[in-house]
């Protein structure tokens, strides 16, 4: 076990870097981080479009969300890898392919989380913001989204954790992220699959568990700031 780690730890962490392209755990982290950073704003935009009062904004996004939700990520990766170049005529790199697939896939799921977060707020909040004279976009930005994002936090983290795990599908198109590297190591060592894949599993677990704990701490900090939903005594007639 220690011999395994001694020999391959650097390869596991960064792939062939610096003599070759960045790979391994570092690539997984870069891919996940870039995926999250791009998918979140896109997801918020798509989520806003999903609750838009204008049909021509709502419908295309709704269609996209349903298509993505009805498709495994693997299919999206294949489309991006094989289908897209045949349309555009340009061969996309493995990293870009995986990133595009992740962003599109996650943004669609995030959109649903954002939609639920917005629709879960009392209707009076938007109405009241509009009654004060705020325009719809401003009411969304100043009143609805800040509250919705807070209540969405647990679901968002869930999706982020999924994103980290989804990067492992890069394996299928030969992207040298940590799962791919692990299979490479396994092929070279040949006799220690349990150890190799045990370490791989542990690596994912530490990442995901760490992110969950971080989010939990953040959630509690936000809750302390008096931002809990208001109690109301009676319902409207």
């Amino acid at each position: 076990m220690s011999e395994l780690i001694d020999t391959y730890w650097l390869y596991f962490l960064v792939g062939q870097f610096p003599s070759g392209p960045l790979g391994g755990l570092a690539l997984t982290l870069v891919l996940a981080a870039a995926g999250l950073l791009l998918a979140l704003p896109l997801g918020v935009l798509l989520g806003l479009a999903r609750v838009s009062p204008w049909r021509w904004v709502r419908w295309p996004v709704t269609a996209l969300v349903f298509v993505v939700r009805g498709t495994p990520l693997l299919m999206v990766v294949f489309w991006a890898y094989f289908f897209l170049p045949s349309v555009t005529g340009v061969k996309t790199g493995q990293f870009a392919t995986m990133l595009i697939a992740l962003v599109v896939f996650d943004a669609a799921y995030l959109a649903e989380i954002v939609r639920a977060g917005i629709q879960g707020l009392p209707r009076g909040q938007l109405e009241c913001a509009r009654a004060l004279g705020l325009s719809y976009p401003r009411a969304m930005r100043c009143v609805v989204l800040p509250q919705a994002l807070r209540s969405m936090l647990p679901s968002l983290v869930n999706q982020f954790v999924s994103t980290i795990k989804e990067t492992s599908l890069g394996y299928i198109i030969g992207l040298a992220e940590v799962s791919f590297i692990a299979t490479q190591i396994n092929t070279q060592v040949f006799t220690k699959p349990a150890e190799v894949f045990g370490i791989l599993g542990l690596t994912y677990f530490v990442l995901c568990f760490g992110l969950s704990r971080l989010a939990y701490a953040l959630e509690r900090r936000l809750a302390r700031r008096g931002s809990t939903p208001l109690r109301t005594t009676t319902a409207t007639p």
């Binding site: 009392p122 009076g124 909040q125 109405e127 009241c128 913001a129 009654a131 004060l132 009143v143 800040p146 509250q147 807070r150 008096g226 931002s227 809990t228 939903p229 208001l230 109301t232 409207t236």
Partner: peptide, 13 residues
């Protein structure tokens, strides 16, 4: 126009 609602609708955040 100032509008006051039955449910107050203060912004909790």
């Amino acid at each position: 126009i100032g509008f006051v609602f039955q449910q107050f609708n203060l912004f909790p955040h």
